[in-house]
Design a protein around this nucleic acid. Structure first.
Lengths: 103, 103
DNA sequence: CAACTATATGAACTCATATTCATATAGTTT
DNA sequence: AAACTATATGAATATGAGTTCATATAGTTG
């Protein structure tokens, strides 16, 4: 099929590059446990054991998820004695605000 | 740890139910090829072979993706002769508009 | 310092899902 | 009708990512 008539209105490969990173970001935050974590942190700063109590998953798994979210720049942490408190970064806030508008 | 002091500001299990469906929706649209498809359809109605030309994937795979998006109510189709034209539903438009605001 | 609590981490394992393959269906063209 | 084009689909396979497991680290408490 001749595509020339469509090339003006369909994104080209250059624009698609941004889609790859948008995709990874969306996939990261879309996973259910991580989405719950973001939802909890949307309410404010919380330590890991608080998060554990609400997202019913193992300590280890939650720690892995927190690491992923942190590496993506969506959350930051702050140590206080034995506890580590996590909270949303501006980027994390922006994205959760958008996502929770859905539906 | 005593959680009572947090129960007022952390989402409860009831609210988490909505998260499960939000999660599946986000995961669906977050996959890179499907996100590309949504991006193409954001520009207007396109037939499958047009989509194939822009998302460099097999005919079969794209057909599977289209089916998934359709089942989620994000796109609809309309047959015209040999060709099948796909386009965004209002729900599909709403979500892509939100997602492409990110960053 | 020994025992304990909170959190992190790497490797192994499991499982969902993307991808492929073969084939079917429906409409078109000659 | 036969050959061809566009699209769909079910089953099989492959791959990535979530989950578990064992263990490590760091801070606290008695």
């Amino acid at each position: 099929m001749n595509m020339s008539s469509y090339s003006c209105c369909v994104p080209n490969k250059y624009e698609f590059k941004q889609i790859a990173s948008l995709s990874s970001l969306i996939k990261l935050i879309g996973e259910e446990s991580r989405l719950k974590i973001m939802c909890i942190l949307k309410q404010g700063k919380h330590c890991v054991c608080e998060i554990e109590d609400h997202v019913k998953q193992s300590q280890s798994l939650i720690s892995h998820h927190l690491k992923d979210l942190k590496e993506a720049g969506l959350i930051k942490d702050e140590k206080q004695g034995l506890y580590v408190y996590y909270f949303l970064t501006p980027k994390g806030k922006e994205i959760t605000n958008l996502l929770f508008q859905i539906k």
